[in-house]
């Protein structure tokens, strides 16, 4: 299953844990990070097929993370912004993400979007 790795970045441990469970049930390999810095460390070691990214986080926020990621990686990794902000679409555009998942989300919607992007990549 190494070709179906999803990296989830969120500072709320509960959300991290539930997204991890949902995706694991569907057979994805899930990596988690609570801020941008941890996520960058992981990306250095593993190349995920998709990143689900919360924007407002301590230590390193989503914007900084995307900036560093782009500088570091030549080939782009699909990125979905996962945010509770009212203007989720704008946030996604700001960092050049491939889409967004507005919190609170429906599990079906989350899975549909993840499936779409991982499959598109594969």
């Amino acid at each position: 299953m190494a070709d179906r790795t999803v990296l989830v970045v969120d500072d709320d441990p509960d959300i991290l844990s539930i997204v991890e469970q949902i995706l694991s049930f569907e057979g994805y390999n899930v990596l988690t990070a609570t801020n941008g810095l941890e996520a960058l460390d992981l990306v250095e070691q593993v190349r995920p097929e998709l990143i689900l990214l919360d924007m407002r986080m301590p230590v390193m926020d989503g914007w900084q993370f995307v900036g560093r990621l782009r500088a570091y990686r030549d080939s782009p990794v699909p990125l979905l912004v996962m945010t509770a902000a009212t203007d989720a679409r704008r946030r996604a555009r700001e960092v050049g993400a491939d889409g967004y998942i507005a919190k609170p989300f429906d599990i079906e919607d989350l899975l549909e979007k993840v499936r779409q992007h991982v499959d598109a990549y594969a």
């Binding site: 709320d12 509960d14 959300i15 539930i18 997204v19 469970q21 949902i22 509770a84 919190k103 609170p104 989300f105 429906d106 599990i107 079906e108």
Partner: peptide, 13 residues
């Protein structure tokens, strides 16, 4: 919205 996200996700799960 943050706690609501967890509540809703677990309920659906």
């Amino acid at each position: 919205k943050t706690p609501i996200t967890s509540l809703k996700a677990y309920a659906q799960l």
